[in-house]
Design a protein around this nucleic acid. Structure first.
Lengths: 328, 328
DNA sequence: TCTATTATACTGATGTTGAGTATAAGTCTT
DNA sequence: AAGACTTATACTCAACATCAGTATAATAGA
């Protein structure tokens, strides 16, 4: 039998291992670091650049994740509790300039916002600054009217009646128009729809300057390259994950009240939850334990302070856990 | 602060865009193609090599996914319905040889097994040949005794009593020992535990020949590099996905009976489902429509032939769907 | 003392899920 | 041709989870 690792074999075979490409491709590790502060989910950006921090993947790194952990912790001194791979992108048309070619391997990391640590060129920004339409905690945001108008105009652009209907239906389903329910997990799909409808500044980058002003774009800060897409991917992933994995606690201080925990979940999910049900699930699943202390900074009756039961990470590192955010 | 990661730029900034690395890194696209045939979930391999087909990512490709689609469809002539990115690996210690460095971007594709199409150097193999312990359709497989013994021995190797207990607990939770429930989605975690316990041939590759024979490994065919890990990732993903997305139909012929559909789901999940409940959910969710025809090849009462209602892809491309496989 | 605010405990309706049973309509065996 | 066997299909019931609402407790501030 042939040695599958050898580089010298028949050309008619599908290859099991690639020989090193003639032209090497660069690989970047991109970090989406999330913290929650006073009801605001924030991401670490490079100051005034609207860019996510990134570093190259190098031969010295043992693995992708360890490479990421290494440079993030060294540069920011943030304690990275939870880290997971998000997605790998390499779209030629999505990075603005057509000549470079980079593979972007993005990671999501959860941490606590810490003042005065790490480099000062970095900044924590609310993710709703980039995605104002994703915050439904106070009901549909005011700017939704603009979204709706822009998407309606885009639908009307379609040539056939069938595809016009199709666009309308997709917009309605994703954004919860016309009696459709708002599903907070569809962050990426909504962003991609707006991109397709050219309501997102990033989508207009390839245009010639003369053509740029024809369409009005929607509120929400753009980012460099396809970083806003990575952010959308991360928000979607996190909103899905908090429902069945106890990852919220990575974002909480050591002790907290149940309302604080609830506010954190609501900040991430972008929608409010039913208080009694939230408490019931948290307690019934024994995710937290009483510290015996109380917090009087609530403005009302003092609240018990709880602490995450670290033991659950061992008990159900695997099996699962539920947070009460209505499924659909 | 020193930045050992940067080659060229100011030492005080985190970078937002990498300059092309001096030393290019090769990127491979690895395809995990799945089909189900007569109750057997199969993966496309390169003949006699126990390797997944792969191809290099090239500058000509518009995106990673389109690159993959292009060469898979060209080389195999398989209709790739559903394709999704699995994971990106680049672990130095997991590819056998320490000198090469490749980023592997793996994709999962669903298709129907077709005879005589494409290259003949390829082969469909049951995935349970690689993961015999994952098939619980007839209850726990006989080889589970070996697994259990091997894991027990590994637990006993631990120095402290605490880590001994920890190992035992992890093994029990993942494999469903001691009253723990079997969770079919934990394919990857189980594989990684066996790898850590050195019960998997792939884990012994770095060893010196003299040390190799000390441990007995567990049944199940090994694959080259870390391809078996990619397979584990794909099985896990698919087992999770069929529960809330109508992807099973990508694996079915145009018309089918409800029992055929059930057998397909069971083949993927590796466990049996309750027939009445399965039918109830399928019909109540209007995933299928009656063709008016019947199949008499059942051996009993003729069964109605159904067809997937393609409309649901538009209706809930997004919203979700449920298949009845007990959650935990 | 009254009011506003938050914490905490309980209740009922509704929906989902898991499991069991009964009947129908064919094939196969003798 | 009768009976056994196999598969299809329809229905029922209990357990449990989820959603929404209400009631009471304990603090701060007017």
């Amino acid at each position: 039998m042939n040695d599958p690792l050898s580089h010298t074999r028949s050309k008619t075979h599908m290859r099991s291992v690639s020989p090193p490409s003639k032209q090497g491709i660069a690989a970047d590790l991109i970090a989406l670091l999330v913290a929650v502060n006073s009801g605001d989910p924030r991401v670490l950006t490079i100051q005034d650049q609207h860019a996510l921090p990134s570093g190259p993947f190098e031969l010295a790194h043992r693995s992708l994740q360890s490479g990421l952990r290494a440079w993030v912790e060294r540069q920011t001194r943030l304690p990275l509790g939870y880290v997971e791979q998000l997605y790998t992108f390499a779209d030629r048309d999505r990075i603005g300039a057509a000549d470079q070619r980079v593979i972007s391997i993005s990671y999501l990391g959860l941490t606590r916002e810490q003042a005065g640590s790490g480099r000062h060129e970095t900044n924590w920004r609310s993710w709703y600054g980039y995605f104002p339409w994703e915050d439904h905690r106070l009901g549909a945001p005011p700017m939704e009217k603009m979204l709706r108008a822009g998407l309606a105009a885009w639908s009307d652009e379609a040539a056939e009646r069938g595809s016009r209907h199709d666009r309308q239906r997709r917009a309605a389903m994703l954004f919860g128009f016309d009696g459709h329910v708002w599903n907070e997990e569809l962050v990426l799909q909504r962003y991609e729809l707006l991109y397709e409808a050219r309501l997102i500044p990033e989508a207009l980058r390839g245009d010639r300057p003369s053509a740029r002003t024809t369409t009005a774009t929607v509120p929400g800060d753009p980012m460099i390259l396809d970083h806003r897409r990575i952010l959308a991917t991360g928000i979607a992933r996190l909103r899905a994950k908090i429902k069945y994995r106890p990852v919220v606690f990575e974002l909480m201080p050591d002790t907290f009240t149940l309302l604080q925990l609830q506010r954190c979940v609501e900040a991430l999910a972008g929608k409010l939850v039913h208080k009694p049900n939230f408490r019931r699930l948290i307690e019934q699943q024994e995710l937290v334990e009483d510290t015996g202390e109380t917090s009087q900074e609530t403005g009302g009756r003092p609240a018990k302070l709880f602490r995450f039961r670290r033991a659950v990470l061992a008990e159900r590192a695997i099996a699962g856990t539920k947070l009460p955010i209505s499924g659909s």
